[in-house]
């Protein structure tokens, strides 16, 4: 056991890091788009949604990973969905207990975490094949990556749309709010723009690698 643990050490750190950047669920895999667009009109909502999703992701990964040997293959997906739906229901009640205003702002999108493809995807592709600790780290990394992406959108949309970040005004009063950024269309534009940035970075890296190869 100890050798297996030490062997997988560099790998486990990798499980954690990959979700943040290289395999970022939103910017690279383009998964789970609905909440990304819908609840990012303020940074606060984006953060809350990201944390809720992360909680469900980590918990469902842990549970799926710990029961992976007892579950016959045929009823696999059904059990995964059951587990995920359970944790989403829990999150729903906990958020209601913490803040009703937040619950109202996120609305049906808390329940809709169930159908977020990222969660079922990680349960099926990773947690059902790996030990508990790497699965938990994978969930944590993917969850953080998701939260990071939501915050990227939330901060930009709130800053331009209401001149504030986390409700604190940063622009002088004469700043004219870009109302469109808070409206649904602003979500599409902002996400499109972020994808542009990521594509440009990728392109530049690929070009640099290409020229390096040529030089060598």
């Amino acid at each position: 056991m100890t050798t297996a643990g030490s062997q997988s050490d560099p790998r486990t750190t990798d499980e954690f890091i990959k979700g943040l950047w290289r395999d970022n669920p939103v910017f690279v895999q383009v998964l789970g788009m609905c909440p990304v667009l819908a609840v990012t009109n303020t940074a606060r909502n984006a953060l809350a949604m990201g944390l809720a999703t992360m909680f469900v992701l980590v918990m469902s990964n842990i549970v799926v990973s710990s029961i992976r040997n007892f579950i016959p293959k045929q009823v696999r997906i059904a059990t995964f969905i059951l587990v995920i739906a359970t944790f989403v229901t829990i999150v729903d009640y906990v958020i209601q207990a913490i803040s009703l205003d937040l619950h109202k702002a996120l609305g049906a999108f808390i329940s809709l975490i169930v159908v977020n493809c990222v969660i079922l995807g990680r349960a099926e592709a990773f947690a059902s094949k790996n030990k508990i600790v790497p699965s938990a780290l994978d969930g944590l990394g993917m969850g953080l990556g998701f939260t990071f992406a939501l915050l990227c959108l939330g901060v930009v949309r709130e800053l331009l749309g209401s001149g504030a970040i986390f409700g604190v005004h940063v622009f002088p009063d004469r700043y004219q709010d870009w109302v469109i950024m808070i409206l649904p269309s602003g979500g599409f534009f902002t996400l499109g723009a972020w994808l542009l940035v990521f594509n440009a970075i990728k392109k530049r890296k690929a070009n640099a690698a290409g020229t390096a190869k040529e030089a060598a």
Partner: peptide, 9 residues
């Protein structure tokens, strides 16, 4: 996807 999102906007 970036182009599709812009059009969707």
């Amino acid at each position: 996807t970036a182009l599709t999102l812009m059009v969707a906007g």
